[in-house]
């Protein structure tokens, strides 16, 4: 082959997306356009934050991982609560490269020398808890302590919903929920709630807020991308888009099954009617969204609010 691309991923070996990634590699290599791919799965080379840096420096060429606002505060647009409403919105994003959501990623990453290839929306994030909050479908004191990740957006959203929030490293969240140090965490798609908590019999409530998205991107070092032939670019772009779509679709399909499995484990699942969710979203959008104008830029915020 003319080029060997180093591809790095962060999801655990057993995660279904890794099978899709393997197919993507086979598709690119099988197209006989002179590309070989060397795959470093399961966070061997480091976290998502670290890999974006590695891709900028060109030490890895291609990455499948989440991106974080440490690299650029504007990336925090992805943490806007209730930005993505449901399965339909997810399909709009993953099937249309020209969706505003994708264009923002493309524009931001381009300024860091990164070529955005495709977006995977693995699902929508709710809360895992060991007890039922006082006011699960509304806003008000929930008498429940949840771990939030270090994002002002996530924290103020959960504060607004009435939770006591606390910061904790993800590695310590499982034992902390298990020991009762915290009552739960806003953290997880239903699938992650199952694999990370329910499968080990920790936790008993899933609140399907669907407040945030769980995203991964497939992206490339810009310089390396520019050096590829048109034919090679086309093969890679096609394969990456297809993979992202498949990962998102398969994850969506798994959601129903997973919800059933959570119930089998005896979990209570708090779902929201469209009206209930719209009511929460309205308050959150009014109180929280304007606060990020200075971080992600009024221009971006307007484009997303459309």
């Amino acid at each position: 082959a003319d080029v060997t691309l180093k591809l790095a991923g962060t999801l655990p070996e057993a995660h279904a997306s890794n099978r899709v990634l393997e197919d993507m590699i086979a598709e690119i290599e099988g197209a006989n356009v002179g590309i070989d791919i060397k795959f470093f799965p399961a966070g061997q080379l480091g976290s998502g934050e670290e890999l974006l840096d590695d891709a900028k420096f060109g030490n890895v060429d291609m990455v499948h991982a989440s991106v974080y606002a440490v690299a650029d505060p504007r990336i925090d647009f992805q943490s806007l609560p209730f930005l993505v409403g449901g399965a339909d919105d997810i399909r709009k994003i993953t099937q249309n490269p020209n969706a505003e959501y994708n264009k923002l990623y493309t524009e931001i990453l381009e300024q860091h020398g990164i070529k955005h290839l495709s977006t995977v929306v693995e699902g929508l994030i709710g809360a895992v808890a060991t007890k039922m909050p006082a006011n699960p479908r509304g806003i008000g004191n929930q008498k429940t302590t949840l771990r939030v990740w270090s994002s002002q957006l996530a924290k103020s959203t959960m504060d607004l919903l009435g939770y006591q929030t606390t910061t904790m490293n993800w590695a310590e969240v499982f034992p902390a929920v298990q020991a009762g140090t915290i009552d739960g965490a806003i953290c997880c798609t239903p699938e992650l709630a199952y694999t990370a908590f329910a499968a080990s019999d920790v936790g008993s409530v899933y609140l399907d807020y669907a407040a945030f998205t769980e995203n991964q991107l497939i992206y490339m070092n810009g310089g390396k991308w520019a050096k590829l032939s048109e034919k090679q670019k086309e093969v890679i772009q096609t394969a990456a888009s297809k993979a992202a779509r498949r990962m998102s679709d398969e994850a969506l399909e798994r959601t129903d099954v997973i919800m059933g499995k959570l119930k089998e484990k005896g979990w209570e699942i708090v779902t929201f009617t469209p009206e209930e969710r719209a009511a929460i979203k309205a308050v959150v959008k009014e109180k929280i969204w304007p606060s990020v104008a200075d971080v992600i830029g009024q221009d971006f915020l307007d484009r997303l609010s459309k």
Binding site: V70, A71, D72, P73, D76, Q111, S150, S151
Partner: peptide
């Protein structure tokens, strides 16, 4: 040097915006 070269998009912590 490579960090400074990324101005104005320096790597910063997400919540408190402390530069790396």
């Amino acid at each position: 040097d490579s960090g400074i070269a990324q101005y104005p998009y320096w790597q910063k912590t997400i919540a408190l915006k402390i530069p790396f």
